[in-house]
Each structure stands twice: as C-alpha cells, then as structure tokens.
Amino acid sequence: MPEANLSLKVLPIVPEDQLYPLVDQVIKMIHDSGLNYMVSPNDTTIEGDLVTLLDLVKKAQELCIAAGAPRVISMITIDYKPDGVSIDEKICSNHS
C-alpha cells in the first residue's frame, strides 16, 4: 500500500490560453509515472512513496518552466502514514 497521498495544484504563470494545455502536460507526466492518481477540478491527487511523490512535484515545476512559464506556483497537501494510506480508503462511503 502506498505510504502517502499528495495533492498537487500547479499554477504556471502563463497567458490564460496556455494555462490548461500546460496543466494537461503535467497531468500526462503524472499519468506516465504509472502511479495511481485522481484528477479533480482544482488539483490532482497521487498515491505513492513520499520521495517519488516529491520528485513528481519537482518534475512538474521543471516541465512548466521548460514550456515557457517564467514562474510556477504550486500548492501541495500531503497525507503520510508509514503503514499506508490510499485514495480509495479516503473516498469510500463505507467507513466504519
């Protein structure tokens, strides 16, 4: 079981018509990582080990800069539990 969930909101400082295409590139990079993830309207939540997840944040920043954003603001939320925590257990409606 993954030890962490990381929710990432990436806001590259680019013209509005470039914003969603660039965010889509970040989501594709997350998809290509092979990790379990869930996209919502405001952020993307990813499961994995903490080191890998933090590396994805770094890659997201670098991807945006390489695509021409002069600045990137990212907000992250981390839920870490050494014994494991999954997206499914947090959104399951059958909590006891």
Rank of each mutant, 00 (worst) to 15 (best):
A67I: 00
T77E: 14
Y20R: 14
Q25T: 03
Y37P: 02
D55W: 00
V23K: 04
L35G: 03
V10T: 14
K90Q: 08
A4G: 03
T77Y: 12
S40L: 05
Q25I: 01
S86R: 14
L50E: 06
H31N: 15
A69L: 04
T45A: 03
S93W: 00
L56P: 12
L63H: 11
P15D: 14
E62I: 12
N94R: 15
L56S: 11
D79I: 02
P12N: 11
G68A: 08
L50T: 10
D24E: 13
D83H: 03
P12I: 04
S74C: 01
K9N: 14
K90D: 01
L11F: 11
I46R: 06
E47N: 09
P15K: 13
A4L: 05
S74Q: 11
T77D: 13
Y37Q: 07
E89G: 00
I13A: 15
P21A: 03
N94A: 09
H31R: 15
T45R: 04
S7W: 02
D17P: 05
K9R: 10
V14D: 07
K59D: 15
L11Q: 13
K81N: 14
A67T: 00
Y80N: 13
E62D: 12
T45F: 00
L63E: 11
M75L: 02
Q61P: 07
S33L: 06
A4W: 02
N5T: 08
K90S: 06
D88C: 00
A67K: 10
I76D: 05
E47W: 03
V85T: 08
V51K: 15
Y80C: 08
I87M: 08
V85Q: 04
K59N: 14
L63C: 10
I65S: 15
L8T: 02
A69P: 01
D17C: 02
I76F: 02
V26G: 04
V14K: 03
I13E: 15
C92G: 09
D88N: 07
G68V: 05
T77W: 04
H95G: 07
M29C: 03
A4V: 08
D79S: 13
Q61T: 10
P15M: 02
T52C: 01
N42E: 10
D49V: 07
L53V: 04
M75S: 12
S74L: 08
K59Y: 03
S7V: 04
M29K: 10
L11V: 15
I91E: 06
A4Y: 01
D79M: 06
S40K: 05
D79E: 15
M1P: 13
S33N: 11
S96I: 09
M29N: 05
V57I: 10
D17V: 11
S40Y: 01
A60F: 06
E16D: 11
A69F: 07
E16K: 05
H31A: 14
G84V: 02
V72I: 01
S74T: 12
E62S: 05
Q18P: 00
P12D: 11
P41A: 08
L8I: 14
I13N: 15
P2C: 06
N94P: 00
I78R: 06
A66E: 15
V10L: 06
V57T: 14
E16L: 08
Q25K: 14
